[in-house]
Nucleic acid binder design. Structure first.
Lengths: 177, 177
DNA sequence: CCATCGTGGTTGCAATCTAAAACCGCGTTA
DNA sequence: TAACGCGGTTTTAGATTGCAACCACGATGG
């Protein structure tokens, strides 16, 4: 975890999310949360990871505002974890990942779980990226564009935003010249 | 990347992709590849990671069929790396990640790169998951369904005790039959 | 009332993995 | 032929992982 994923975090719209998620486990935790898991033990049983790891990941997800630790749920003295709005925003990321997985990681005859629409009980449609006018866009139909750069010097001087994390434990923060 | 992400890889359509990608760096490499990078040095300069790491990640991506190492490109004695079909399939995953990043990781006034349609030079539309009939689906409108096929009862297969440890070198952590 | 179990963690520690830097081979340029 | 950039591999310290053991606490339970 303790890897600043890039020295360019501040401007890469992909690296920041990755950094916040933390690692693969976290994404699987989120996935399970979408699936209805709420309790520590549920996640642990479902994922089969060590308790300390799960503990750390949950803490990290909470610290990044992806999940919330709600003090109790139904009288029990225990905590439950639920996705925040931000966490629910990962839905499409997971969906995309799942579709990619279905496309390339399963033999055609191999059975696998799939995402179905509750109402119709039919599989969901394929995700597609579209232009404003509705054309479907592929990898080569798009470019990354840097918008009219407001105040150029900002790129070097970044801290007015609460972007940087200071977790409760020493996260070996290097970087940040 | 030595973490088998789950003992249930074989049935999780999310864990498999994650496992193949390997780690965050790999995703950023793929991102750069979509952006036009092809050469070792390009990736390195763009990402700022150590060469051994880049080397390992590229090797891993190639091993998983996400990128191809093409022996030469234009006479040079060097190799270039390009996305395979499978690799290009990550386009939507990256797009979803980017949109999530835009939604939650940038202050409203903060400038950031964005994905635009080449032809119209307008930003792309928002991704959305739809049902067969076209309804837009949110996290709570879907379920994971496991198809009737195949007598999969492996979820119950929890080895009660893997025996004593000590001296279990276990060359690599592969445990997947 | 004491024992035991299940849950939700934290702590300790060995083994493993990461990544910065040094090093290497090979064409090119000077 | 020396110097250089490119594409990588090896070296090495130090960070991370994850198993197991431990702790706290409530619920059984006998």
């Amino acid at each position: 975890m303790g890897k600043r994923v890039s020295h360019k975090d501040s401007l890469c719209g992909v690296a920041r999310p990755l950094d916040a998620i933390g690692d693969w486990w976290s994404l699987l935790i989120v996935r399970d949360a979408f699936d209805g898991s709420r309790r520590f033990g549920e996640f642990q049983r479902s994922l089969g990871l060590a308790k300390n790891i799960l503990s750390a990941r949950l803490r990290n997800l909470v610290a990044h505002g992806i999940m919330d630790a709600v003090p109790a749920a139904e009288g029990g003295p225990y905590q439950e974890y639920e996705l925040t709005e931000k966490g629910r925003g990962l839905f499409l990321v997971l969906a995309a990942l799942r579709q990619w997985g279905e496309d390339f990681f399963f033999a055609p005859d191999e059975s696998h779980v799939l995402l179905v629409d509750k109402k119709s009980t039919l599989p969901v449609r394929r995700l597609e990226l579209r232009a404003q006018d509705g054309r479907i866009l592929g990898p080569s139909d798009t470019v990354i564009r840097r918008p009219p750069n407001t105040s150029e010097m900002e790129t070097a001087n970044r801290q007015p935003r609460p972007a940087k994390r200071r977790a409760s434990k020493s996260r070996t923060q290097k970087e940040r010249p």
